[in-house]
């Protein structure tokens, strides 16, 4: 209950920071996701009510853009780049190694809540291909065998 209360307060604060502007819907969702880690349905309801737009529109935007998640993610988000350069340099093998290592499906959190992972398309670091990104830091020229070592840096 307390948790829900805090979520709504956070959402309200983010709405206020964006001047309750319906044009800023995407920015608002980005801010909520950054704060909470994903977009809880209660938060989407609050946004719809406050901005006076239908929940269906908020939901449409939240599901249209790849960056938004409706389920909780792990503490650290691992992004395996599958842009063209990474693809031809073995990004797919890293993806498979990650699957084996974390033993959950993409975008699902590991049971200990430490990681979730997903494939992304081009993070714009092709000179370092293949690249994986953990949160906001980049790890370049990694191979499938480096996966364990990279993950070990994050607790």
């Amino acid at each position: 209950m307390q948790h829900d209360q805090r979520l709504l307060e956070d959402t309200d604060r983010i709405l206020a920071r964006n001047n309750h502007d319906a044009n800023a819907l995407i920015a608002i969702l980005q801010d909520v996701q950054r704060k909470v880690g994903y977009l809880p349905i209660d938060s989407l309801r609050r946004i719809a009510e406050t901005l006076r737009v239908p929940l269906s529109r908020v939901y449409a935007v939240a599901t249209f853009y790849k960056a938004f998640k409706l389920k909780p993610a792990g503490r650290h988000i691992v992004k395996i780049c599958l842009g063209t350069a990474c693809h031809i340099k073995g990004g797919g093998e890293i993806m498979r190694a990650m699957e084996t290592e974390l033993n959950v499906k993409p975008e699902e959190a590991t049971p200990d809540g430490r990681f979730s992972y997903e494939a992304v398309r081009c993070v714009g670091c092709c000179g370092l291909a293949p690249v994986i990104m953990v949160d906001e830091s980049f790890h370049g020229k990694v191979g499938a065998k480096d996966v364990k070592q990279v993950l070990a840096k994050y607790s």
Partner: peptide, 11 residues
């Protein structure tokens, strides 16, 4: 909104 995989000049 540089989205082409393999391009990063705008960034």
């Amino acid at each position: 909104d540089e989205g082409d995989p393999g391009a990063f000049m705008d960034r």
